[in-house]
């Protein structure tokens, strides 16, 4: 396996990052994409557009809600907000992710010794 190849996200990772970002503050799609891209330091290779199918799925599951507003450039924009269910879901996901990460880390550490 070549190291240089960008790593694909595991299923649910993008959703988790979206929810986490929205927990801090409501954002519209574009800002959300830029934020995730910036904070991940470009380590995670995601197409910006793949955010939108994920947002649609979250909308359908009612983990986020959206409100329409007007942008400074006078465009209709949709601002996404975390719902109560979304916050709970995020908590569950994060803790299960952390447990999984812990497990993986241990296995990797054992392998070394």
């Amino acid at each position: 396996m070549k190291d240089a190849e960008p790593r694909n996200l595991f299923p649910g990772a993008l959703e988790m990052m979206i929810l986490r970002t929205l927990k801090r503050q409501p954002l519209h799609g574009y800002a959300l994409a830029q934020h995730i891209k910036k904070t991940s330091n470009g380590l995670l290779q995601i197409e910006e557009g793949s955010l939108y199918p994920a947002l649609q799925r979250l909308l359908r599951a009612e983990l986020v809600k959206a409100e329409w507003g007007i942008s400074p450039t006078n465009r209709r924009v949709r601002t996404y907000k975390l719902t109560v269910a979304g916050a709970k879901h995020l908590e569950r996901e994060v803790s299960s992710f952390e447990r999984m990460l812990e497990g993986i880390t241990r296995v990797l550490a054992r392998g070394e010794s």
Partner: peptide, 16 residues
């Protein structure tokens, strides 16, 4: 339709 608008906005914003 909403989705189309949103994506168009994203692209414009990025280009700007």
């Amino acid at each position: 339709h909403d989705l189309d608008d949103e994506i168009a906005f994203h692209l414009e914003e990025r280009e700007r």
